Computed example of a mutant assay.
Amino acid sequence: MWLRRPGVLLLLLGALQATDTQEQEVKALVGSSVELRCVFPERHTFDLNDLYVYWQISVVGQPKTVTYYLSGNSSTGQEDDRYRDRARLSPESMQRGDFSLHLYNITPYDEQKFNCLVFRKSLELKKILDVEVTLHVAANYSMPVVSAPSGPSEDRELTFTCTSVNGYPRPNVYWINKTDNSVLDGGLQNHTVSVNAQGLYDVVSVLRVPWAPSINVGCCIENVLLHQNLTNRPAEPIPGTEPGNTGSHRDVHRRDHGAVLSAVAVLLVLVLGAVGCVCRSRCPRADPCRWRAARPERALFDCV
């Protein structure tokens, strides 16, 4: 009867003499599949009827069953709900001493220490294998998007907002001066990191800086586990700024300079027009009929 209660059996097995625990570390992306290795160190063929195999995790100090194999007993129905239909052992591989766990559709919850325990009934439930596998889970953050101020305004504070979503683990966030790639003072930044419905992290970072004639900043999201740094592409230019200069405000003076040039051009046109009028008043007028004779296609115009 007790074979139908793997939780009770596990407590009994845990009280037996322990072997040395082997430790491993594995990385996996969210949504992917992974194999957690648990292999008997020597070449050996096992009888499945002689084996008890457990994969478990510890939650708040309590063991939770991921999957298991008990000889002479159905190895289904006792798994933790989060691992049901996602964790699998291969009977054929176990006969060859390979007790590895195949875990599918990785989620952030799977960032755990997994413990593989193998016992032999014929040896009075002696533990022959104890392997601990630490699974590190990662997910790529979206490319950060920076929202620049709506327009330049002298003598006022400028606010930039950076957004990146669906990443794991929790990121490091930096604002940089793209002019010299220096990291901006952390006191100018405010980061909000939240967990979404998928268990992934969303990031919103706000940078506030004093107005300056030329500002070119970037937002960097660092995923330490993936050794990855993502920096935003150039934001949409502020009206009147040069494309590609995120938050650039040097064009305030360029707009004024352009307005002056436009005024000079209009004045020049007026001067040239006045000169033309003076010239026509002093020069003899050409005979319009002579013009018509020279250009017959203008015959529709009357001569006076």
Rank of each mutant, 00 (worst) to 15 (best):
Y104Q: 15
V137E: 00
D185N: 13
P171S: 10
V137A: 00
T107Y: 06
H102V: 12
N172W: 12
Y109E: 04
L129N: 02
R156S: 15
T134N: 05
F160G: 03
P152R: 10
S100V: 14
H102I: 12
V133L: 00
N181R: 12
P171G: 06
G151F: 12
N115G: 05
I106R: 05
F119M: 06
K121W: 08
K113P: 07
F114S: 03
T159F: 08
N177C: 02
P169W: 05
V183K: 02
V118P: 01
N166F: 07
S182G: 13
S142H: 03
L123N: 04
G186W: 11
G97P: 04
P144G: 02
N140T: 10
V118M: 02
Y168E: 01
N115L: 15
R120V: 08
D185W: 09
E124T: 13
S164R: 07
A139P: 02
K178R: 15
L123I: 06
Q189R: 12
V146M: 07
V131M: 03
G187N: 15
K126G: 09
N115V: 14
D110S: 03
S122A: 09
H136M: 03
L103P: 01
G97M: 09
V183M: 09
I106N: 01
S150L: 11
G186Y: 11
S164E: 04
G167R: 02
S147F: 08
S100T: 13
P152E: 10
K178S: 06
T163W: 05
G186M: 13
I176P: 01
C162G: 08
R156G: 08
S122E: 04
E124I: 13
E132Q: 11
D180Q: 08
A139Y: 01
K178A: 07
C116A: 09
E132N: 10
A148I: 08
S182A: 12
N177V: 06
F160A: 10
L129G: 02
L188Q: 10
Y174L: 14
L101G: 03
L188F: 09
Y109N: 03
S164C: 10
S164Y: 07
V173E: 02
E124A: 14
R96T: 14
V137K: 01
T107W: 03
A148C: 05
A148T: 13
T134I: 06
E132S: 11
T161I: 15
H191A: 12
L101R: 04
V146K: 01
K121F: 05
K121L: 13
K121T: 11
L184H: 06
D130V: 05
W175K: 02
I106T: 03
F119W: 12
V173Q: 04
K126V: 08
A138F: 05
S153R: 15
P149L: 12
N181E: 14
T107P: 00
W175P: 04
M143D: 11
S164F: 07
V131T: 15
T161W: 07
A139K: 05
N140K: 04
N140P: 00
T161D: 07
H191E: 12
N172I: 15
T163P: 00
V133I: 03
D130T: 06
N190A: 14
S147I: 13
V173N: 05
D130E: 12
Y109C: 01
N115D: 10
G186C: 08
F114Y: 15
N177M: 01
L184Y: 03
M143P: 00
G97R: 09
P144F: 03
L123E: 11
D110Y: 05
L103W: 04
D180A: 07
R96K: 11
